[in-house]
């Protein structure tokens, strides 16, 4: 990215609010996305990511606040916005009894592509997602990862300036995940701005120039990966797999001076703390003396998981 591109705002979101039946799904969120940027919205399920991206895609409108996309107001100029955005929904939004080529042709015609442009664009996109060989096979015979790749290609037919992707790697195999990462990076190199939502840390860490962390409808942090990780300080993350963790053990661990957060699941425990390596033995002692059956224990360097626990007190995938 050049400096000039980075400073050019392509999406502006100001104090956006969306409520459903009294529940506030998006609560006064404000941030900008720069032209040529890959921006990740990270947060657990139900945090409000999909609602926000749906508003940006003109699927519905906000209750209050202002959004401009490529200079157009999302309420007044939704048709213009639709011509500059490409949308990859969370679902495989393809027709299973049509072939990959027929699906792409259908969506291409909806975007008003001429016959010639459509033909060449389909070939380019099939090649880009590595499915030229399967172009004339029905979607119903594709693997989950292949469907996701065609799902992405269908959003790129009109060569949009901005690509919105809602959980693009959900349920895909590692090979398809890598292909999707490569595709996003390639598109970005061509100048496309990308906003995607994810609850997978790997997506955000590998792809994003900047990451916004959303929880309970609010933007709780926004920075580059490095900037965000600095927020955690010197924290380490210890993850313990154990059966029957007694409440006394949890309380004893919480009392350790350098422990910042303790998160408990059914058969596991995650502890955010300073000087994790030094205290590892102490923690094992507490657990075993209280009768917990420890199956595994590992220590992790600071990452977005650590950050999320640091910011919210809960695990990202909870």
């Amino acid at each position: 990215m050049t400096e000039a591109l980075i400073n050019d705002v392509i999406i502006s979101i100001e104090k956006v609010v969306k409520r459903y039946n009294g529940f506030t799904a998006v609560d006064e969120i404000s941030f900008n996305i720069k032209r040529g940027e890959i921006f990740g919205l990270l947060g657990p399920n139900g945090a409000g990511k999909s609602t926000l991206i749906s508003i940006l895609c003109c699927l519905f409108t906000q209750d209050s606040g202002k959004i401009t996309i490529d200079g157009f107001d999302n309420i007044k100029d939704s048709i213009r916005i639709k011509n500059v955005i490409g949308v990859v929904p969370q679902e495989i939004s393809l027709y299973s009894t049509l072939t990959a080529r027929e699906n792409l042709a259908f969506y291409g015609k909806i975007y008003g592509l001429s016959k010639m442009a459509l033909h060449s664009r389909i070939e380019i996109l099939l090649d880009m997602v590595g499915l030229t060989e399967r172009a004339d096979d029905m979607i119903q015979g594709f693997s989950g990862g292949m469907k996701r790749r065609i799902n992405i290609a269908a959003a790129l037919l009109h060569n949009p300036k901005i690509l919105f992707m809602d959980e693009p790697t959900t349920g895909v195999d590692p090979q398809s995940r890598k292909r999707i990462y490569d595709t996003i990076v390639d598109l970005n190199k061509q100048g496309m701005s990308v906003l995607f939502t994810t609850h997978q840390m790997e997506d955000a860490q590998k792809l994003c120039h900047r990451i916004g962390i959303v929880d309970k409808g609010q933007l709780i942090a926004l920075d580059t990966l490095t900037g965000l990780l600095e927020l955690t300080g010197e924290s380490d993350l210890i993850h313990v797999e154990a059966k029957d963790i007694p409440p006394n053990a949890v309380e004893s661990i919480r009392k350790i001076e350098t422990v910042k957060q303790v998160s408990i699941d059914t058969d596991s425990m995650t502890i955010q703390l300073l000087k994790g390596r030094e205290l590892l033995v102490n923690i094992i002692d507490i657990l075993t003396s209280e009768g917990a059956k420890v199956e595994s224990i590992n220590i992790k360097e600071p990452d977005l998981e650590t950050l999320f626990l640091h910011l919210t007190g809960t695990k990202l995938r909870s």
């Binding site: 639709k82 679902e91 393809l94």
Partner: peptide, 13 residues
């Protein structure tokens, strides 16, 4: 349910 309607709504139609 399949999301194709959502995709169509986000397209210029």
């Amino acid at each position: 349910e399949s999301g194709t309607l959502r995709r169509l709504v986000t397209a210029p139609i």
